[in-house]
Design a binder for these strands. Structure first.
Lengths: 334, 334
DNA sequence: TACTGCGATTTGAACGATCAAACCGATTTA
DNA sequence: TAAATCGGTTTGATCGTTCAAATCGCAGTA
């Protein structure tokens, strides 16, 4: 049956007042130990669970994190694993993830507003940050808590807001070194069109590793639309230009490059395909990234809320920035 | 700033009472047109949005749909696209999707309980239904609204609960016919281990199409663990056994089969990889499936709630069952 | 003895919405 | 003319929790 256990039931069962039960749950240190135990036992026995709607009404905190679910553009992506990790970490911290969709930045901002009116999520997790991202400034202006998975590309201040990201450059640098160690001297890179922060980051790791050896990287670089067929065409060109091994900006492109000939290829993201076809690839620590996002947010929320408007408390601390290293998963392809 | 517009603000602004505003929003037909317009204008001007927490406290309805996010086992899967569709359809119907994770059925049932206590989702959407699924009976016993994406495999009653699914047999039958039309006479099938409802369903469409022509399918069938390498091995065997074309239970397996030789291959699920490598595959109408799930649930919720305990109303109607057809996406591989 | 201080606990009010019942003015019915 | 009906609207109570203030018992101090 639909047992509906309220705080009053627990209070009665433990012979204390409602408020004492509330205190046990929210500020246990201010309740005498003996009382606390009695209340906790009652909570246990009755199977009490706090009603978030009622709590939220009083406190304005919903214990919800809002995340946009992306529309899996064309490629194989990585978002679902991040989302899974986020859901898990959030649950551990007593939060739940609520989803929304949006076609573009403007409509996403509209959705912020809707969500805030109806469900009052405590914070937002943004992904796919990009040049000229207006979402972060909107959230900041409204004093809302949020973290981005992805650096704030293109903003000179290096990000006035907290973010978590994976160091793409470190990844491609590791991949390039791996190929150098195997004896390759002419290592090509297949990238995305200019203007993508992630793309330039990944390109950078490859380039700087070659430059550090005194090589000029440019001749062995090609940009593609990110498709497998684009990757295959680019790989043919690079092989013709003398490349003996290839680092790719994504698994999608790498998958195409594999068709182009018998040179070692390294992809990025370690998507399921990579495992299936034996593609060496860079694996993002997505579960950890998600956990760090949750960590950043809970820290932010547990200290002075950003939207409390108070100038003091945690508001003035510099926002946290977390950069994680991807790891090279070595398979047959390189 | 954090404008907080309540129903009382709207009421004042429109010179009516709180309840009239509430009526305009919930039962507009009982408000005089002139008043209704005035209230709607006030809602618009003030940017009012109903506070779900307050509404839920009074009504017990949260306008949340709970969905478990799966842990992307090994393979490339299809869940993320379903989830995206679900979020979109739900939003259109005034609902939001809240996520949870679970390691197995038992812990999932525990999570049902937690969620119901804390967030009171109006309904659950279950995926990955399987033989002996205890989750559906738990939900049914507790009088909760839910729909499964996937048939209730193995229950003789054909499902006492509503479900939405994609007709896998119809898909593989279409694939098989496509190969027959191309002139193939010895068409193999690479499947999953016995005991999977989805796997047997997909196998069935291939088998019955051959049987209808008077052929014996068994000699050209192999079961695998679902991996690409398993698919490759099975494909080699089948080709050696005389198969000139292959229908596969998944894209993962099909990807392996492609490596085995130069015979036509058809996969299932039309994952991003299929597009990348030119694999002909069966595409599930996931957005529509998601929309139908939402449709089934809203119908259920808008009629007599199942958990209202009332024997009358919509409870006695037979639950809705929706079976959708996948479509064959023809690419280079077949 | 009376006052102050303090930790632990209780009480009343409030969050924002909806339900149920009351109310009101105009019309119909007896 | 009084009563009943009816559409439209308003009023009071309530959902379950937490905040703020009040209360209580007890020890320390003047």
């Amino acid at each position: 049956m639909a047992e509906k256990v309220t705080i009053a039931d627990v209070a009665r069962h433990a012979s204390v007042s409602r408020q004492t039960v509330s205190n046990v749950l929210n500020t246990p240190e201010m309740v005498r130990e003996e009382t606390r135990d009695r209340v906790l036992r009652a909570v246990e026995e009755l199977g009490y669970r706090v009603n978030q709607a009622a709590r939220r009404m009083r406190t304005g905190r919903s214990r919800l994190l809002a995340v946009r679910i992306e529309s899996t553009q064309d490629g194989m992506n990585v978002f679902d694993r991040f989302l899974h990790g986020l859901t898990e970490s959030a649950a551990r911290a007593g939060y739940r993830v609520i989803l929304y969709t949006a076609d573009d930045d403007r409509s996403e901002i509209g959705t912020f507003d809707d969500l805030l009116g109806a469900y009052e999520p405590d914070a937002f997790v943004l992904t796919s940050t990009h040049f000229g991202d207006v979402r972060t400034s909107w959230l900041a202006e409204h004093g809302l808590a949020f973290v981005t998975f992805g650096r704030p590309w293109g903003t000179p201040d290096g990000g006035a807001h907290p973010w978590v990201d994976v160091d793409g450059a470190a990844g491609t640098a590791a991949a390039t070194r791996h190929l150098l160690d195997a004896g390759h001297r002419r290592i090509g890179f297949i990238g995305w069109p200019e203007g993508s922060g992630v793309g330039e980051d990944r390109r950078g790791g490859w380039a700087r590793t070659l430059v550090a050896r005194g090589d000029r990287p440019e001749p062995l670089e090609r940009r593609t639309d990110g498709s497998a067929s684009g990757g295959e065409a680019a790989a043919r060109e690079l092989i013709a230009a003398g490349a003996t091994a290839l680092v790719c900006v994504s698994d999608s492109v790498a998958l195409g490059a594999l068709q182009a000939g018998d040179v070692p290829v390294i992809g990025f993201d370690d998507t399921p395909v990579a495992g299936a076809v034996g593609l060496t690839s860079l694996s993002q620590p997505l579960a950890e990234a998600a956990a760090r996002c949750v960590g950043v947010l809970t820290a932010l929320l547990d200290s002075g809320l950003p939207n409390s408007g108070l100038p003091g408390s945690g508001a003035s601390r510099t926002p946290e920035h977390v950069l994680l290293e991807p790891s090279l998963v070595i398979r047959r392809s390189a």
